[in-house]
Simulated assay, not measured.
Amino acid sequence: MVKYSDLSGNSGVEAYDIGNNYIKIRFKGGDVYLYSYAKPGKRHVEEMKHLATIGKGLATYISRNIKNRFEAKL
């Protein structure tokens, strides 16, 4: 997993792993969630990939737009 840059300095996201049709996100505390094209959908996954790579806004995006719509808790 890649360490999340957290440019805002207060994110709940710790690290991420990007695949072709998914993103795995590790939150502070150690929980890892899989978000895929199947759930919550391609548009959301692609936006989360973008936010992960720029290091800003990922946790906020998830809390506002995704909530508990993840494919799996790993």
Rank of each mutant, 00 (worst) to 15 (best):
K3D: 13
K3M: 12
Y4C: 06
Y4L: 07
S5T: 13
D6E: 05
L7E: 10
S8N: 15
S8P: 10
G9V: 12
G9K: 12
G9Q: 11
N10M: 12
S11M: 13
S11T: 15
S11R: 08
G12K: 13
G12I: 12
V13R: 02
V13Y: 03
E14T: 11
E14P: 10
A15H: 04
A15N: 05
D17L: 08
D17E: 13
D17H: 08
I18A: 09
G19Y: 13
G19W: 11
N20D: 13
N21L: 13
Y22W: 08
I23S: 03
K24S: 09
K24E: 10
K24I: 04
R26Y: 06
R26W: 07
R26K: 15
F27H: 07
G29Y: 12
G30H: 05
G30K: 01
D31I: 11
D31A: 14
D31T: 12
V32M: 10
Y33H: 11
Y33C: 08
Y33S: 05
L34W: 03
L34P: 02
L34S: 03
S36I: 00
S36R: 03
Y37W: 12
Y37V: 04
A38Q: 03
A38L: 09
A38G: 03
P40A: 05
P40R: 02
G41Y: 03
G41K: 00
G41W: 03
K42P: 00
R43I: 09
R43T: 07
H44C: 05
H44E: 05
E46P: 01
E46H: 01
E46R: 02
E47Q: 04
E47K: 10
E47S: 02
M48W: 00
M48Q: 00
K49R: 13
K49P: 09
K49M: 08
H50P: 01
H50I: 06
L51A: 02
L51P: 03
A52F: 01
A52H: 01
A52T: 02
I54W: 08
G55F: 10
G55L: 08
G55Y: 06
K56Y: 09
G57F: 06
L58G: 01
T60K: 12
Y61C: 04
S63M: 11
S63E: 07
R64F: 09
R64A: 09
N65Y: 13
N65P: 06
N65Q: 07
I66V: 09
I66K: 02
I66R: 01
N68K: 14
R69S: 10
R69I: 02
R69Y: 09
R69A: 11
E71L: 14
E71F: 12
A72L: 13
L74W: 15
L74V: 14
L74Y: 15
L74S: 15
L74D: 15
